[in-house]
């Protein structure tokens, strides 16, 4: 199988089928990322299409000595986030603002751990998706890049324009914030269990 980077070179040579191959390789990963960001199937599909059109028009800006995937995900991330900001004034907050607000109460609430653990996998999955959608977009994207796309710190740093050393810290903070929301969802249901 040809590498992504070889396909890019072929596309630059005018071989349009190379682009088709890139679309087929990445459409579902990009779609999954965008879908979790925006939460709406149709909107996600439209944005995914826009991502690939952006990729095409910017293909000459891609540095062919680098890896293609992080560059593509950077465009996908930026396109999705700019849509979020354009359409709604959603809960975009600076990493550290969010962190200072949530950190103080990040101690695990023991009384929701059991209910969460006792849920069916599908049910917990739904709870996590719900919590993800409530997460500030900067936290959400870092979780998606790390876990859904399984990218390493170097790649995430490149995509989000962060220092590599800061990525791990931000992943931790995002996970804590996610856990916090997960817990709030449970206490909001009025479920209380004493250990």
């Amino acid at each position: 199988m040809l590498s992504d980077e070889t396909l890019v070179l072929r596309l630059r040579d005018g071989e349009i089928t190379a682009f088709e191959e890139l679309v087929n390789r990445y459409k579902n990963k990009v779609f999954a990322l965008v879908y979790r960001m925006v939460g709406d199937y149709q909107e996600a599909e439209d944005i995914t299409q826009e991502v690939f059109l952006n990729i095409y028009t910017k293909i000459n800006q891609f540095d062919s000595e680098k890896k293609f995937a992080p560059w593509l995900y950077r465009i996908a991330t930026n396109t999705a986030i700019s849509h979020l900001r354009k359409n709604k004034n959603r809960n975009h907050l600076n990493f550290d603002e969010v962190f200072s607000g949530l950190y103080s109460s990040l101690q695990a609430s023991w009384d929701v751990v059991d209910p969460l653990l006792n849920m069916e996998r599908v049910e917990l999955k739904e709870e996590i998706n719900k919590a993800l959608s409530k997460l500030p977009e900067n936290y959400r994207i870092i979780i998606l890049l790390r876990y859904q796309l399984e990218l390493n710190n170097q790649e995430i740093a490149q995509i989000l324009n962060l220092k590599k050393e800061n990525v791990e810290v931000k992943v931790h903070r995002a996970r804590k914030a996610l856990r916090k929301i997960l817990e709030e969802q449970q206490t909001g249901k009025g479920v209380k269990h004493e250990l």
């Binding site: 599909e45 995914t48 059109l53 000459n60 800006q61």
Partner: peptide, 22 residues
């Protein structure tokens, strides 16, 4: 169909912009 739609749209797009990376 998604791929087809993308390919159809890029056929109508102007050429990619200059190569900044280079």
């Amino acid at each position: 169909e998604f791929t087809r739609q993308v390919m159809k749209k890029i056929a109508l797009l102007p050429a990619p912009l200059p190569q900044r990376a280079v």
